[in-house]
């Protein structure tokens, strides 16, 4: 899988509240579409109008910290975000992103050199993340087997729809 796009650069400790405030989650609890206009609203005013399909989020440490709120990665994917690159991720956000097929990439160097609007490429086949604008490339750890299969197909629900079972059952039976 290769994703290339324009970057939205964010700092450290972007929480699920920053991505989508709990207020909207609870008010629009039955309909995720109603939350889309509030995505990142306190961090990047007007984000939902400015974001373009294929854009990539690049952030610092502990991206997605806070709540279990799976609406956070789902809304990013719905808005067209192609991948999130960060120095580290909060573990539930990371799991949620894998499960819904939003590529999440841990990168030590690229966030430090990246600025808003740079062109970023991630290549999960060859295993690198690259800031094309700055000419900085960094190898990334390949996903473990099941995780790679889930991301590649677009999420665990997609996987189950296609194969009738989660990837690990295929592996053991």
């Amino acid at each position: 899988m290769i994703r290339q796009g324009r970057c939205w650069k964010l700092g450290d400790n972007i929480s699920t509240d920053h991505i989508i405030s709990g207020k909207y989650k609870f008010e629009a609890i039955n309909d995720i579409n109603k939350m889309l206009t509030h995505l990142f609203e306190e961090v990047i005013p007007g984000f939902h109008k400015l974001v373009r399909p294929g854009d990539i989020v690049v952030a610092g440490r502990n991206f997605g910290k806070g709540s279990s709120r799976e609406q956070a990665p789902r809304l990013l994917k719905m808005a067209g975000i192609g991948a999130v690159v960060a120095k580290s991720f909060a573990h539930i956000f990371y799991r949620n992103s894998i499960n819904i097929g939003l590529p999440v990439v841990i990168s030590r160097k690229v966030p430090d050199v990246t600025q808003n609007g740079d062109v970023i490429e991630i290549n999960l086949v060859e295993g690198y993340v690259k800031n094309i604008t700055r000419g900085v490339m960094e190898p990334i750890q390949p996903y473990p087997k099941y995780i790679g299969q889930i991301v590649e197909i677009g999420g665990i629900v997609e996987y189950i729809r296609r194969y009738g079972r989660p990837p690990w059952q295929e592996a053991t039976r």
């Binding site: 799976e70 573990h91 539930i92 799991r95 999420g155 989660p166 690990w168």
Partner: peptide, 23 residues
Amino acid sequence: ATGIGSTDAAIAMVYGELWLRIP
């Protein structure tokens, strides 16, 4: 005991198991 997301919980309820990275 560890926190998970909604799709995770759905998978755990449907299959009784899920993937976890041992910390």
